[in-house]
């Protein structure tokens, strides 16, 4: 390669490396702010501030959803399969909300370790399948887990 071109190429590569390092350091320093939500383990360890508007995310624990028959009030536990946190919410839930599904709730921690949410968003995973396949899978796995393998993977990603 021509020496001038070689020199230009080196300059460009240095520029690129410099910018990458700068961006990597910034995102590393801001990692807690880039995370969309706290997971239940972080909340259990007291990493999440009390009485400040935060987001909490995880799986809705199987069998934990309690609906108030009088109002739109719902209580459920959000878990990452190590710890779980009790969430209280009044309002309309998204269509995808179900036990065993991922959610992200916005609200604040009260003093008693309850999370009072004012908005609940549904999170879904990267798996798509026709309903019949899902039914067959559920039948095969019994009632224990709605999708074998998927929950472990999802747990790892939280």
């Amino acid at each position: 390669m021509h020496p001038i071109r070689k020199k230009r190429l080196t300059i460009v590569l240095f520029l690129l490396a410099g910018v990458s390092v700068a961006v990597a350091l910034t995102t590393y320093a801001l990692r807690q702010n880039i995370n969309l939500f706290y997971d239940p383990s972080q909340i259990a360890q007291g990493e999440a501030p009390v009485d400040v508007r935060i987001r909490a995310g995880g799986m809705v624990e199987e069998g934990s959803v309690l609906r108030d028959p009088e109002s739109l009030k719902v209580e459920f536990k959000v878990t990452d399969f190590t710890s779980s946190v009790l969430v209280e919410y009044t309002g309309i839930l998204p269509d995808l909300f179900a036990e065993g599904q991922g959610v992200v709730a916005m609200g604040r921690m009260d003093g008693n370790g309850r999370f009072v949410a004012d908005q609940v968003l549904a999170k879904h995973d990267e798996n798509y399948m026709p309903p019949e396949v899902n039914e067959a899978l559920e039948k095969a796995a019994g009632k224990r887990a709605s999708m074998p393998g998927v929950q472990d993977e999802a747990a790892a990603s939280y």
């Binding site: 880039i34 879904h124 939280y158």
Partner: peptide, 24 residues
């Protein structure tokens, strides 16, 4: 993959089978 996001991870990865059936 690096952060908690509402958006789900990629369905298609170079090294793995896609997490959806062929008719999709």
């Amino acid at each position: 993959e690096w952060w908690n996001t509402l958006h789900q991870p990629a369905t298609f990865k170079l090294t793995e089978k896609p997490s959806m059936p062929a008719e999709m």
